[in-house]
Amino acid sequence: VSFKITLTSDPRLPYKVLSVPESTPFTAVLKFAAEEFKVPAATSAIITNDGIGINPAQTAGNVFLKHGSELRII
């Protein structure tokens, strides 16, 4: 599955597209996205474009099915 993750704390709204296997734990996606944007993973969260928080204790495939591919990291 592929996710387009936007960094909301930067006024330029940079984004990265990450492709991972469906079975990947979403905690790993969060950690990798945080490292890519050089923000601390421990204090970061991934939310939907509607501002709904995503529980990272599920697979990337589940997140994709529930929330789609466009996400934000805060």
Results as ranks from 00 to 15, higher is better:
residue 1 V to K: 03
residue 1 V to Q: 02
residue 2 S to D: 14
residue 2 S to H: 05
residue 3 F to Y: 02
residue 3 F to V: 00
residue 3 F to A: 00
residue 3 F to T: 01
residue 3 F to M: 00
residue 4 K to N: 09
residue 4 K to T: 10
residue 5 I to H: 00
residue 7 L to S: 14
residue 7 L to Q: 09
residue 7 L to K: 15
residue 7 L to H: 13
residue 7 L to R: 13
residue 8 T to M: 04
residue 8 T to L: 03
residue 8 T to F: 09
residue 9 S to A: 11
residue 9 S to P: 11
residue 9 S to L: 12
residue 10 D to I: 03
residue 11 P to R: 08
residue 11 P to V: 03
residue 13 L to G: 09
residue 14 P to Q: 10
residue 14 P to N: 11
residue 15 Y to H: 12
residue 16 K to Y: 08
residue 16 K to F: 08
residue 17 V to R: 15
residue 18 L to P: 01
residue 18 L to M: 14
residue 19 S to D: 09
residue 19 S to F: 05
residue 19 S to G: 09
residue 20 V to N: 01
residue 21 P to T: 13
residue 21 P to N: 13
residue 23 S to C: 11
residue 23 S to G: 12
residue 23 S to M: 13
residue 25 P to K: 14
residue 25 P to T: 14
residue 26 F to M: 15
residue 26 F to H: 00
residue 28 A to D: 14
residue 28 A to G: 12
residue 28 A to E: 11
residue 28 A to C: 11
residue 29 V to W: 01
residue 29 V to E: 01
residue 29 V to S: 00
residue 29 V to T: 02
residue 29 V to N: 01
residue 30 L to P: 00
residue 30 L to A: 15
residue 30 L to N: 14
residue 30 L to F: 14
residue 30 L to E: 15
residue 31 K to Y: 08
residue 32 F to I: 05
residue 33 A to Y: 05
residue 33 A to V: 08
residue 33 A to P: 00
residue 34 A to R: 14
residue 34 A to V: 14
residue 34 A to L: 10
residue 34 A to C: 15
residue 34 A to N: 09
residue 34 A to T: 14
residue 35 E to Y: 08
residue 35 E to N: 12
residue 35 E to C: 08
residue 37 F to V: 00
residue 37 F to R: 02
residue 37 F to W: 06
residue 38 K to M: 11
residue 39 V to I: 12
residue 39 V to K: 05
residue 40 P to F: 02
residue 40 P to G: 04
residue 40 P to T: 05
residue 40 P to M: 04
residue 41 A to Y: 06
residue 41 A to K: 07
residue 41 A to H: 07
residue 42 A to V: 05
residue 43 T to G: 13
residue 43 T to D: 15
residue 44 S to N: 03
residue 44 S to L: 15
residue 45 A to Q: 15
residue 46 I to Q: 01
residue 46 I to T: 02
residue 46 I to N: 01
residue 46 I to W: 02
residue 47 I to D: 04
residue 47 I to F: 10
residue 48 T to G: 14
residue 49 N to R: 12
residue 50 D to E: 07
residue 50 D to F: 04
residue 51 G to A: 02
residue 51 G to Y: 04
residue 51 G to K: 04
residue 53 G to V: 14
residue 53 G to D: 14
residue 55 N to W: 07
residue 55 N to G: 05
residue 56 P to R: 08
residue 56 P to A: 11
residue 56 P to S: 13
residue 57 A to H: 11
residue 57 A to Q: 13
residue 58 Q to W: 13
residue 58 Q to T: 05
residue 58 Q to H: 12
residue 58 Q to N: 12
residue 59 T to I: 10
residue 60 A to F: 00
residue 60 A to Q: 00
residue 60 A to C: 13
residue 61 G to E: 09
residue 61 G to Y: 09
residue 63 V to I: 04
residue 64 F to R: 07
residue 64 F to I: 06
residue 65 L to R: 08
residue 66 K to F: 05
residue 66 K to I: 09
residue 67 H to M: 04
residue 68 G to D: 02
residue 68 G to W: 00
residue 69 S to T: 12
residue 69 S to V: 10
residue 69 S to P: 11
residue 70 E to G: 12
residue 70 E to D: 13
residue 71 L to R: 01
residue 71 L to P: 01
residue 72 R to N: 15
residue 73 I to E: 04
residue 73 I to M: 15
residue 73 I to W: 03
residue 74 I to K: 15
residue 74 I to R: 15
